[in-house]
Nucleic acid binder design. Structure first.
Length: 475
RNA sequence: GGCGCCGUAGCCAAGGGGUAAGGCAGAGGUCUGCAAAACCUCGAUUCACCGGUUCGAAUCCGGUCGGCGCCUCCA
């Protein structure tokens, strides 16, 4: 088996064939940093993090690039639209770059909580103004772009392949219902490569066409090819970016002679009450709100319980079901680990079939729900075997399986060791109390035994008696 | 109006020509001094609806109904 990915370009699942064997270059469109990250922003990064982890697990060397848009794009496409960053800066009484910086870190802190690994490179649009101007100039030279009074537009009529990614007919785009108002474009379909900065527009840079700022689409064309090469493997983003953003990226790159991305992956939307979460409609739940009530790893696990190309409707009930499910997997891990001495050699053989099924699921266009189902099947086996007195080697094998597949590949550590390790001292103290309780039980003094259990419970320590002795956990 | 997606048990969710994964919730049982956890057992003759193709359809085709996305900033 080998990895197959659904490619938006061909609308088919295709075997993954990298430009350079053994290497994978991935570009993921990151957020525009002007407001708090919400759940919708988390899906792509989590899914692509699993993609990256899976590729590395399978032996690839991965370069993972995520951009950040921080050059103050307009609120809408009208020529006199407000700069989003500047608008926010006014509201918060901050420099535009302070706004960008604030939300940049809000985003990456949230991603860290979700156990999303840091990208290899995080290029910012504001740091690549020169390269964007260079590509703009080249497109003018090649005759597919033109300047009008300080604005530079891509000439869609000069590029017949426009529409190939999103499956649109350029001629039908002309019949769009929206009428461009007060535009100096030759053609309503044309899009900006460079925009003239009006008086009062704060984020502006000098250019051959006067002071201005880059168009929204060109940053990604420039930064992806700069760090991954003119032809690279995977380019991804939300489904809502297919048109116009990615379509324009393709046009810019190919018109400049760059082969560009081989595989286009788009994750579907997270909805709230059936409607897409969106910043612009003030219809979303922020990650900060979510993390106040749920372990970020539960959120991550929840996101992986649906396939990335399906719409996922958010609900508290769903998140709770995910929390309960993850607990079940973690219980199986605990069951296997309970009383297991250090340094036992793992027996991988009983888990070979699970590994194969798990790999087949991820190889099939990253079918994480199915991969998780395999882990639940494995958990059932493990629980049963442990109940029946499985060997240390078997239990060590079970631990290795979950550490590897759930922990390393899906990025959801099966052990809650952050708490566990920090409380090594408490561990010893609780063990002492448990020993005392055992003595009480041995002399059938259940009143005393129960009193000890109740007092531990008051402190948040839950006792569980098993045939192998008592154990405990913090609730 | 154009392009596209979706509709599977109470809820979530895979599958996508050969007779319905998994999770949550629920019920019964085993174990236990009690409890917790764990384990076992139980649920769609059926995949929105109607036709068609086929030996065979949840899976393919056509239509109907319902929901959603893009066509404007958006993950």
């Amino acid at each position: 088996m080998s990895l197959t990915l659904y490619n938006t370009l061909t609308r088919e699942k295709e075997p993954f064939r990298p430009v350079v064997p053994g290497h994978a270059g991935i570009y993921m469109c990151g957020p525009t940093v002007y407001s708090d990250p919400h759940l919708g922003h988390a899906r792509g990064p989590v899914v692509f993090d699993v993609l990256r982890r899976w590729l590395e697990h399978e032996g690839y060397r991965v370069r993972f690039v995520t951009n950040v848009t921080d050059v103050g794009h307009l609120v809408d496409d009208a020529d006199d639209g407000e700069d989003k960053l500047a608008k926010r800066a006014q509201i918060e009484k901050l420099e535009p770059m302070e706004v960008a910086e604030k939300y940049f870190w809000a985003y990456f802190d949230a991603m860290a909580s979700l156990n999303v690994r840091r990208p290899s490179i995080v290029p910012r649009a504001s740091g690549h103004i020169i390269e964007q101007q260079q590509l703009t100039a080249e497109l003018i030279e090649r005759g597919v772009a033109y300047e009008r009074d300080g604005n530079v537009y891509f000439d869609v009529s000069a590029w017949e392949a426009y529409g190939k990614l999103s499956g649109r007919d350029p001629d039908e785009l002309l019949e769009g219902t929206r009428v461009e108002v007060r535009s100096d474009k030759d053609d309503p379909r044309d899009f900006a490569l460079w925009k003239r900065a009006e008086a009062g527009h704060i984020m502006r840079w000098p250019s051959p066409w006067g002071e201005g700022f880059p168009g929204w689409h060109i940053e990604c064309t420039v930064m992806s090819t700069k760090y991954l090469g003119d032809e690279f493997d995977i380019h991804g983003g939300g489904l809502d970016l297919v048109f116009p953003h990615h379509e324009c990226e393709v046009a810019q790159a190919e018109a400049a002679g760059k082969p560009f991305a081989r595989y286009w992956m788009h994750w579907n939307m997270i909805t709230l009450g059936g409607e897409k979460m969106a910043k612009s409609k003030d219809h979303f739940v922020t990650l900060e709100e979510l993390f106040a009530d749920y372990d970020p790893l539960v959120v991550r696990f929840h996101l992986l319980r649906s396939h990335y190309r399906s719409v996922s409707d958010f609900s508290e009930e769903g998140l709770q079901a995910s929390a309960a499910g993850l607990k079940r997997l973690r219980e199986a891990y605990r069951n296997a680990r309970h009383g297991l001495p250090e340094g036992v050699e793992a027996d991988a053989q009983p888990f070979a079939a699970f590994r194969e099924r798990f790999a087949a699921a991820l190889d099939d266009d990253l079918n994480t729900p199915q991969a998780i189902a395999v882990l639940f099947d494995a958990a059932r086996d493990v629980n049963r075997a442990v109940e029946e007195g499985a060997s240390p080697a078997y239990r060590a094998g079970a631990i290795a399986l979950l550490d590897e597949l759930l922990g390393e590949v899906l990025g959801v550590p099966p052990a809650e060791d952050a708490v566990h390790d920090a409380l090594a001292t408490v561990d010893g103290l609780v063990d002492m109390v448990l020993a005392e309780r055992q003595r009480a039980r041995d002399r059938r003094d259940f009143a005393s035994a129960d009193q000890l259990r109740d007092r531990l419970a008051e402190l948040g320590v839950t006792i569980e008696d098993t045939p192998q002795g008592s154990r405990w956990r913090l609730d």
